Amino acid sequence: MVNITRAADLSAIGANGGGWTAPVGTTSPGDPLIQPTGLWQPIGGISEDGLTQGFDEDSEEYTPWGYTSPWRTTITKSVRTFGLTAWETSRTTVKSIQYRIAEADLAPDEDGLTTYAETASPLPDRRAWWFIVIDGNVMQGFYVPEGEVSERSDVSHKQDETAGYEWTITAYPDTEGNTVYHADRLPATPEYTGS
């Protein structure tokens, strides 16, 4: 009889989590258990949809004459993205990300009024990003050393809906050629008892 090994604690549910951003070049917090500090600024409340880790890949298949299936495949595109909706739209860090404006330019005047303008020619706004996903004792951390909001969705201001900034963040390669660094706290995989 076949012995099927299962362990419920090895599955993951995004029960909780968070996101932070910092200037490009800021080192990773390194451990999902450690509260990011220093230059790391929180994104705050994220919608119940949580964090979406995206994989966008294309490949080229090479099928030799006389075969009907390829004998080699080459990856021609490999993009990593993270998607989320930031609900704390009044948080200075979040507004800075949404409108590509430096946080210092969002300081209120002596009357408490903050004014800013959106440019028709936005410049790149690359930042470092740190995301964590928590499920009890299972924790996953994703460090993006250089990423940018590449897509923004419309913002609804309605009586029966929380306004949110929905972003897709594209990870770019760092000097080592890496786009995302992982730091996981996971339970040990049970020993396989099959033959």
Rank of each mutant, 00 (worst) to 15 (best):
E166K: 15
M1Q: 12
A171M: 05
V2I: 11
T189S: 10
A102D: 14
I13E: 11
Q140D: 01
A7I: 01
E57I: 07
S153A: 14
F142G: 01
W65Q: 07
A7L: 10
G45S: 10
P29W: 06
R100G: 00
P122D: 05
V133Y: 13
R127M: 08
S69L: 11
W130C: 03
T27L: 15
I43C: 09
P32A: 07
E146P: 02
G50E: 01
M139A: 11
R185L: 15
G141H: 00
G54P: 00
A188S: 13
I4T: 14
G54F: 02
E110I: 07
R100I: 00
T37W: 02
L39C: 01
E88W: 01
E146L: 12
D105T: 05
G25W: 04
T92G: 01
G177V: 07
L33N: 15
S121P: 00
V24F: 03
A107H: 06
R80L: 01
I46K: 02
D160W: 09
V94Y: 05
Y99I: 04
E88L: 07
S121K: 10
R91P: 00
L186P: 03
E103G: 08
V24H: 03
S69Q: 14
G38R: 06
I4V: 15
V2M: 07
Q159S: 15
R80M: 02
A8D: 10
D111R: 06
R127C: 03
E148L: 08
V180Y: 04
W87H: 07
A8C: 04
D125I: 00
E110R: 06
E57Y: 10
P29H: 05
A22Q: 03
D160V: 11
P122T: 03
T27D: 14
Q140Y: 06
L186E: 12
E88K: 02
D9F: 14
T81L: 02
G45K: 10
V133G: 12
K77T: 11
G44V: 04
N178W: 03
W167V: 06
E176V: 05
T119L: 07
A128M: 01
W167L: 06
T92V: 14
N137W: 05
D49S: 12
P42T: 04
P145A: 09
P64Q: 11
W65E: 09
Y99D: 06
E48W: 00
T115M: 07
D49M: 05
P70K: 00
I169W: 10
L186I: 15
V133A: 15
T68M: 05
G18Q: 07
Q41T: 08
G18V: 06
A171L: 04
E191L: 12
I132M: 06
T162L: 14
I34N: 08
A163Y: 04
A86N: 02
G141S: 01
V133W: 13
W87F: 04
V155T: 15
Y143K: 03
N3S: 10
T68V: 07
V180C: 03
W167P: 08
E118V: 07
H182I: 14
A128H: 03
T27I: 12
G141I: 00
V138N: 13
E60F: 00
W65I: 11
F55D: 09
N3Q: 13
Q140S: 01
P122Q: 08
A117L: 06
S28E: 00
K77F: 03
M1I: 11
D9A: 10
P29D: 06
T119C: 05
T170S: 15
N3L: 15
D58E: 13
A188K: 13
S47G: 12
T193F: 10
